[in-house]
Simulated assay, not measured.
Amino acid sequence: MELFACAGCDTPLTTEVTQVALPGHTHQVWGNGVPLPALLEAGTYVVDPEPSGPPWRRWAEVGAAEAAARGVFAPVYSLSFGVPGTIGLAPGDTRNTVLVPEPSGDACCGQDGRDGPNLFCAGCHRPVATRIDDCSYWQVVWLVPDAVRRLPAPGPAEPPADWPTLLREREGIPPVEPSGMWDRRWEAELGVTLAHLLAACAGAPVGVPEGLLADTLGRVLTVLLPGSPEKTLALAGPGLPAPDADLVLVPRHPQTGETWSPPGEATLVPLAADVWIHLAFQQNRPLVPTIKGDLPEAEPPRLPYSFFLPDTRVFLRTLARLPAVREPWLRAIYDRVSGVPCWRPW
């Protein structure tokens, strides 16, 4: 565990926190006027390796060669030339900071962070972080790397949980909210996975097993890669038998970010652990009776009111950062999806 202090006056700025992997929905923007909860669990932090915040430069100004050197291989609206390595944590884990909100023409209900740091050290009044809490954004505080110092917390460091421990302690994320809407994290995380899956399949149509996986990825894969399936897809990971498939969806460790690696020659496609756990162990679980009065009643399943669509912004953001997008067939998919506002496969 660590804590972060002001680099100017050593005032502690956070409580003790433990590093975890950057979630796939970190940069998700979802629905105007929709409040989103905290991006991270209390007591955790992440490091975003990419530059963030102002100044911004348009793609035409940056150019393909300079963008590729930065790890972006397809056109995007703009690129940040701010400081890389910002440190994200839950807003409740900050200490000794003062919010100085700046007016923003794009913000609606709070702070969207586009104008730079808005949290100042209470000790020396240096700008140290940016709080984001506007609607449509996951709530998070981003510490400015150059403005803070990382200090070790007292006591021994706890090692990351192994997979048996994670499977015992985590139940996964249900795909559908009580309102009937698909869970926003599923939309984002499967947007990440779809990008990696397209890069891995080399343009061959992919057959998806029936069930929730077909309901979420199957429809969009049929549109993007039409034709008779040439490659097969299956789940693989801890606690599952080894599948006979060309492509396997494997969990990404929520603390380390490392992808589970099984034996065999199948091509690995990463998937967020909490989504993978539900697909692997929860989707066919019998309904659990609940007690109402004297009679047990089965809790009805949550059914979505629309077809599933992976988050297109997250999908495009991920795909633009995969070198495989330079392949003509995959670049054509990228251009097709990015060229239509609110793209839908149906």
Rank of each mutant, 00 (worst) to 15 (best):
37 P>A: 13
231 K>H: 02
164 P>L: 06
21 A>N: 09
227 G>V: 02
330 L>D: 07
227 G>S: 07
174 P>D: 05
314 V>M: 01
188 A>Y: 05
146 D>Q: 13
80 S>Q: 08
143 L>P: 06
207 G>S: 01
223 V>R: 15
334 Y>I: 08
41 E>C: 01
280 A>S: 12
167 L>C: 09
142 W>D: 04
264 G>L: 10
203 G>D: 13
34 V>G: 00
243 P>D: 10
8 G>Q: 14
175 P>K: 01
59 W>P: 00
311 D>T: 02
173 I>M: 13
28 Q>S: 14
142 W>G: 06
165 T>R: 15
182 W>A: 05
33 G>K: 08
128 V>C: 07
336 R>V: 00
272 A>L: 02
196 H>E: 15
310 P>Q: 12
215 D>K: 13
295 L>H: 10
136 S>T: 11
22 L>C: 06
126 R>M: 04
301 P>N: 04
333 I>C: 03
110 G>I: 04
4 F>W: 14
150 R>M: 12
225 L>G: 08
228 S>M: 06
235 L>K: 02
131 R>M: 09
97 T>N: 01
337 V>C: 11
145 P>V: 06
194 L>G: 07
250 V>R: 12
100 V>L: 11
139 Q>S: 12
268 L>S: 02
89 L>S: 07
195 A>W: 08
104 S>T: 12
135 C>H: 15
225 L>Q: 02
306 S>R: 15
18 T>K: 08
311 D>F: 03
83 V>Q: 15
142 W>L: 14
37 P>T: 08
328 P>E: 10
263 P>T: 09
323 P>W: 04
82 G>M: 11
186 W>A: 05
187 E>N: 04
